[in-house]
């Protein structure tokens, strides 16, 4: 769910919690439903806050550690809200050969987050994607799904990121 700035229609935690319980109901007491419930919970809330993990653990009768282990294993799940800007680093063959690792390392150093994570100030989310069709510009990344930045060199990257407030 995309956060609405005016918060007019954003449901509060109580409401989300009620809806989450409905999702859990389908699998109550069944540990085998963990991934399905987590997926639906993330669809509902936009990410997986701690309170949701606790409700899910209780509802399915598994320990919080088990839930947490699964959530952190799969890059698909996020424990923190997605950032305002999504940085998608291309790891297609051409980009990979030309320096995807350098790009990721530079962003990691600049922002202190790994792929799949969001900065604590909710400004950026970093992810790795497969070929974006800009092989001629390798290594490349797309920000917010529209701005392609290519032929990246380590020095440029912090400047590029700065443009996205």
């Amino acid at each position: 769910m995309v956060a609405c700035e005016c918060k007019c229609e954003e449901p509060g935690k109580d409401e989300l919690s009620k809806q989450l319980e409905l999702i859990i109901d389908e699998y109550r007491g069944k540990s085998s439903g963990l991934i399905q419930v987590l997926t639906k919970a993330q669809e509902l809330i936009g990410y997986l806050p701690k309170w949701a993990l606790i409700s899910i653990a209780k509802g399915l009768g598994v320990s919080l550690q088990e839930v947490y282990g699964v959530v952190t294993f799969y890059a698909f799940f996020s424990l923190i809200p997605r950032g305002r800007h999504k940085i998608s680093v291309c790891a297609g063959t051409a980009c990979y050969v030309k320096g995807t690792n350098m790009v990721i390392k530079t962003i990691r150093e600049a922002l202190g987050i790994k792929p799949g994570q969001t900065t604590p100030d909710s400004r950026y989310t970093l992810e790795i994607v497969r070929c974006i069709g800009a092989c001629g510009l390798a290594p490349a990344m797309i920000i917010d799904g529209k701005d392609v930045h290519g032929r990246l060199e380590a020095e440029q990257i912090p400047e590029i990121l700065e443009q996205y407030a």
């Binding site: 320990s63 550690q65 088990e66 947490y68 282990g69 952190t72 294993f73």
Partner: peptide, 9 residues
Amino acid sequence: VSVLTAQER
């Protein structure tokens, strides 16, 4: 007791 889990990857 289940207080330990493998996390991250």
